[in-house]
Amino acid sequence: MATQALTTTVRRRGRALAGTGGRTAALFLVPFFAVFAIAMIAPVIYSLVLSFHSQQKSGLGFGEAKTVFVGLENYVQVFQSETFVEGIARLGLYCLIYIPCMVGGAVAFALLLDATVAKARKLFQLLVFLPHAVPGVIAALIWAYLYTPGISPLVQALQGGGIQINFLDSHMVLPSIVNIGVWEWTGYNVIILFTALQAVPREILEAARVDGAGEIRAAVSIKFPLILPALSVIMLFTIIGTLQLFTEPSIISKATASVTSTWVPNLWAYDAAFIRHNLNQAAAASIIIAGLAAVLSLAVTRLSSRMNKS
């Protein structure tokens, strides 16, 4: 009894628990914030600093390079670079194809899996999740071979049907890389959406059926609106992930000349740092990518919270 009385007083002081104080909390938080500072904060600050400076050689280009403050000049140069702007446009196009295909595919598959007549749900879940256990590098490698004439059963089968497609030419290579992304991420999101569907209250669906709504009608007008919150989180992570596009194009670039060394912004930044040795521009490009991610994720969060309210 005495203990209980004590507990309530403790709780009334505002959930202060075991040891409470800032010092205990610090013990638990310091390791994380130490690595966070090294791996997140310091790089962002350092690249901000770098992006406002430039290496300039004096006179005829002999002697030590000097670091000079140049303000926004690096950003201006990055945006004036034709290849960077093309990369951004390509990434935009990639998003426009990839996001509807992947998210739409995931929603469709999850709804099918949740249909009353679906069989062997667990097996399908496992199979559909399989690609996520395949690292991005390996996924890109597998598909690179599946796109290569002579080795690929896919190209062979299409040729057998009289269709000649070069998956790696300059027109097809973007959709071909989209397909790798779709293959890698659809199943992952199917599992998220399917679990969200499982939480849809059964009474609602039962009531709809009594009112004469068929399976498809129920899926579109009842289930789909109820998984919108899960869908908005998926959109958020998909956009952040898509902006990072690097692994797949850099693997595919070895199989075809259609993917250039500056194909997407991340490749551009890599190229700037290690091929052109212009670290300041590379830093500016990194900041632009991070800024783009921040703006887009803010937009998605705003939009989805407005949608959830209404």
């Binding site: 997140m40 790089p43 350092y46 690249s47 992930g241 990072q244």
Partner: peptide
């Protein structure tokens, strides 16, 4: 809030600066 911002920063955007550091 800091932690959540960290979730949103694309990893690849920090790789090059981390290399420089």
């Amino acid at each position: 809030g800091f932690v959540l911002v960290g979730v949103l920063i694309p990893n690849t955007a920090t790789v090059l600066p981390m290399y420089l550091l």
